[in-house]
Nucleic acid binder design. Structure first.
Lengths: 160, 160
DNA sequence: TAATTAGTTCGGATTTTTTAGAACTAAAGA
DNA sequence: TCTTTAGTTCTAAAAAATCCGAACTAATTA
């Protein structure tokens, strides 16, 4: 399928994926640094990175890395492990963050749903074009909430 | 369910929803002005707004409105209608933009999928924690792509 | 106790995004 | 033809997000 790559070419490509992840995350609303950290922790062969290693790999200041890492931990995207007799924290991506992802998606849908439901209540003419459209949108939200819930039951029953 | 609202209170609340839509759109990656325009065109009782009316309602410069309106039309969120003997364009939200929305979502998933698939191919140890996690993520993407496709078939067959 | 390590926090600098204002265009009307 | 209308486009300003360096802290090591 592919030409044989040298070790260097392979890690070079992995680093390119890290940058691509940064750009994609950026498009999707997140910060590109967050995306690059997530990419680093998942696409390279090394499974765990210390703070310093992240700084060195991404060539970004300690302060920016510190802020972003803390944010990624708050939002449960990454975590760290420690080893006895070693003061450093070893960061790694959290596996199976789908549950958190779906939860966030559901919460976003719920906010939009609330907004649209209120808008519909406030409409003078419930048969107007916009009112009927809001009704359709609400149906769509209900469908997706349902899908998310059944997905959770089917696939994620055993997750934390 | 609710106290009876005066006409003013009702439209006041509608305007608040427009602002809330701006903030929510902003959180979700879009610009808040785009959200406010979408809110204006869907939550008020008036079904169609001219360029000037949007400027007056939102109290934003013509240039900003012009740019944002054009972007919303390119992305098929709004459209305009015209009336004989009237030079103005009457903007309104496009109904049932779910298809476009899902298409955008599918495209985003496909990009992430490609990235992760490549990352997995490049992994030295396919049984590592990160490699297995990527595998799980890919399974999740496959599931959602499938859901989206069947949703399209089931509900959106008649849409443009 | 002093020095080093492993970060965090703060204020400012840089970059990017958003908005405004003025000049412009193309069509319609007088 | 001159003016008005309905916007568009360009450049600069304002605001917001991002990033950095320097000073700091708390724990560990010498």
């Amino acid at each position: 399928m592919q030409e044989k790559l040298t070790e260097e070419q392979r890690t070079q490509k992995q680093r390119e994926l890290v940058e691509a992840m940064g750009r994609l995350t950026n498009q999707g609303g997140g910060t590109s640094l967050a995306g690059r950290i997530l990419g680093l922790l998942s696409f390279l062969d090394k499974e765990e990175f210390t703070f310093e290693e992240i700084v060195d790999e991404l060539k970004i200041s300690k302060s920016s890395i510190s802020t972003t890492i803390n944010h990624l931990m708050e939002t449960d995207k990454i975590e760290y492990v420690t080893y006895p007799g070693d003061r450093k924290r070893y960061f790694r991506i959290k596996i199976n963050t789908r549950k958190q992802f779906l939860l966030a998606m559901k919460r976003h849908i719920e906010k939009l749903e609330k907004l649209n439901r209120t808008a519909l209540e406030l409409k003078l003419d419930k048969n107007s074009r916009t009112a009927k459209n809001i009704g359709e949108i609400l149906k769509g939200f209900a469908f997706w909430k349902n899908q998310i819930e059944s997905y959770e039951k089917e696939f994620l029953a055993d997750e934390i």
